[in-house]
Design a binder for these strands. Structure first.
Lengths: 185, 185, 185, 185
DNA sequence: GATGAATGAGGTTTCATTCAT
DNA sequence: TATGAATGAAACCTCATTCAT
C-alpha cells in the first residue's frame, strides 16, 4: 500500500507533463505518464491541488538539498555565497523541467500559504549567509532580504541566457557571479 | 462602429481576472467583468488566444511608451540607464496587476512567435542603451544581452521587495539602481 | 425598398455558401457573400427557415422552367420524355451547386409541407408525360408515379457518373436515356 | 471494460436522433437517448466526427452483411443481381432510419476519405457481379460503374415509392427488378 | 431601408473526481 | 489496493435574431 515508488513516479510524470502543457495538464495524462490508471493518482494525493502542493515542496526541497550538501559553512562569505550561487544554478541547468514547473507553481495560486511556510522553514544555513550578504556593499542600506532577492533575480538572468547559449553555461555561471559580487563588495 | 471603449473594457477586465485567477480565467468571467454578454467578447477578439496575444501587446506597448516618453537620449549612459530603470519600475509599481499578467503571459505558450516579434520591433532607443551597457564593467565578458537580462532581473527583485514594503518604494528604486550600477562601473 | 437585385444576390450567395458548407452555413456568411450587412438579410426573409424555403422554391422553379421552355408538347411520347430527361440533366450539370443545395434541402426537414405542395403544383406538362410513361412497358403494373421516380433516380446516376467523368457528359446523357427507354418499351 | 452494449446504444440513439433532426442532432441528445451522461459519449467516440464516421461504417457494413449472407455465388448473373437487389431493399425497407442516416452521411462532408476507403474494400462479391452487369445490354457502352449506380438509383426509386405505399412493398420490389432487368437484357 | 453591435441560448469538448469491481 | 467507466459542471465558441442608429 502507498508504494513510495509509485508516488515518485507520479511526481516525475507531473513534472514532465506540466513542463510541456502548463498547470492545466490533466490528472489523467499525469497518471498515464506514471504508468498508472486514471483514478490511482487519487489514492496518493487527495486532489490535484494536493498533488501540486506536494510537488512544489518536493522540488524546492530537492533544490535546497543540493545547496546544503558540501556547504562550506566555515569558509568566508564570498566562498559561501559562491557555493549557493553555483549549486543552485547547477540544479536549475541540469533540470530545466523541474525549474520551469517550480516557477509556474510559484506564480500560481494553487500553492497554499501553508506550503510556502513549510518551505521557508528549511533555510537556516542559506539564510545566515544571505543575511550577512545583506549587510555588505550596496545592500547595506536596502531592506533586509533584498540581497537574497537580488541573487535569485541574477540567477534568473543567468538561466535565461544559458538556455540561449548552452555551450557557455559554465563560464556564464562564473562570470555572472563576479558581476553579482561587485554589488556586495 | 465597434467601440474602442468596450475593447478597452474587455482588456481591463482581462487584466483584473487573470491577475486574480491566472490564465485559466474564463472568458465568461472576463466578459461579465467588462459588463458585456458572454458572446460579445468574441466580436472583439476572435478567440481567447487572440485576446491574450492582443493583451500582451497592449501591456508591453504601454510599458514601453512610459520609457520612451522624456527619454534623455542625449545624456550620458548612466542617466539613460537610470531613466529606463525608473520609468519601468514606476509603471510596474503603479500597475501590479498589469505586470503580473505580463509575466504570466511571457511564461505561457499562448503568446505566439509573431506577437513576440511584433514587440521586439519597438526597442530601438532602449536597445541602444542596453548595448552600450553590455560593453561596460562586469558585463564586458558576458554574452551580448546579459546586461539587459540582468537589469530586468534586478528590477524583478525590487518589485518583489516593494510589494512587501510599499512605503519604501521610492527609496528602494533609487538605492537598488546604485547597486545595479556597481556591476556596470 | 426590397430591391429584387438584393434578394437575388442573397439567394445566389446562399447557394454558394450552402454548397460549400452545408445547411449549417451561417446567415452572416450568406449576407456577407451577397455584399450586404449581417442584419439586412432579415429584411428580405423573415428567418433562416424562410430563406431556405424560398430558395428551394426558386431552385425547383428554375429547373422546371428549363424543362418547359421548348417543350415539344405535340411530339410523341419518346420525344417528350427525352426532352425532360435532357433539359433537366443539362440544368443539373451546368449548375452543380444549385443541384447539390436542392438535394440537401429536399432531405432536410426545413422544407415545409406547404413549400412541397407549392412545387407540386407546377407540374402539368411534365406530369402528363410521366403519366403516359407510367402506362408503358415495365411500368404498366407498377404504382402510378413510379415511372417518374425511376426517371429521377436514373438521372441521379447520370449526374454521379458525370461528376466523375466530366468529359463524357454529353454522350452519357444520351446513352443513359437509351438505357432508361428500354424499361418503357 | 468499455461495454460494447453501451457503444451500440450510442450508435442506435444516434440513428434515431439523426433520422429525426438531421446531422445537426446534438451530442447531448444522442447521449441522453442512449441513457448516458453527456460526457460519457466521448469515452466511446473521441469526437462527434468520429462518431459519425464509425456510424457510417457500421451502417454500411450491416447492409453489406445482409447481401453477403446466402449470396448465390454460383448462380447465373440474373439470379445474383436479383439477390443483391432484394437483399439490399429488404434491409432498407426494414430499417428506414438507418437508410436515411446512411444517405445523409454519404452526402455530408464529415465522412472522411479514409472511411470511404475502408468501405470500398468490402465489395468483392458484389463488385464482381456488378462488373458483369456492366458488360450487358444497355450498359455495354456506358462507363464502367454505371450499372452499379443505376441499380442503386432504381432501388432509391423503389424505396421512395414503398414509403408511400407500404402495403405493396413485396410486389414492388419484384416488379421493379423486372423493370431494371430490361436495361440489362 | 440598411447597418452591424449586442445578445444569450445552445453546441462540442475536457476534466477532476467518485465508486463499483 | 488498483482500476477505469461514468459523471456533469464548466470551458470555449457559434449563430440566428433584435434593434438603436
Amino acid at each position: 500500500m502507498r508504494s513510495p515508488e509509485k508516488r515518485q513516479a507520479i511526481l516525475r510524470a507531473a513534472v514532465r507533463e506540466i513542463a510541456e502543457t502548463g498547470l492545466g495538464a490533466s490528472t489523467a495524462r499525469i497518471a498515464r505518464g506514471a504508468g498508472l490508471a486514471e483514478g490511482t493518482m487519487f489514492r496518493y494525493f487527495s486532489s490535484k491541488d494536493d498533488l501540486l502542493n506536494e510537488l512544489y515542496i518536493e522540488l524546492k526541497t530537492d533544490a535546497y538539498r543540493r545547496i546544503c550538501a558540501d556547504f562550506p559553512k566555515d569558509s568566508g562569505l564570498r566562498e559561501r555565497a559562491r557555493h549557493i550561487w553555483t549549486a543552485h544554478l547547477r540544479w536549475a541547468l541540469e533540470k530545466p523541467d523541474e525549474r520551469k514547473v517550480s516557477v509556474l507553481l510559484h506564480l500560481s495560486n494553487v500553492v497554499s500559504a501553508a506550503t510556502r511556510e513549510r518551505i521557508g522553514t528549511e533555510r537556516k544555513m542559506v539564510g545566515q549567509t544571505m543575511e550577512e550578504l545583506g549587510k555588505c556593499g550596496a545592500f547595506k542600506d536596502l531592506p533586509q532580504g533584498f540581497a537574497s532577492s537580488a541573487m535569485a533575480a541574477m540567477q534568473e538572468a543567468v538561466m535565461e541566457m544559458a538556455s540561449k547559449k548552452p555551450r557557455q553555461k559554465v563560464m556564464l555561471v562564473e562570470l555572472a557571479f563576479d558581476a553579482f559580487w561587485r554589488m556586495v563588495k
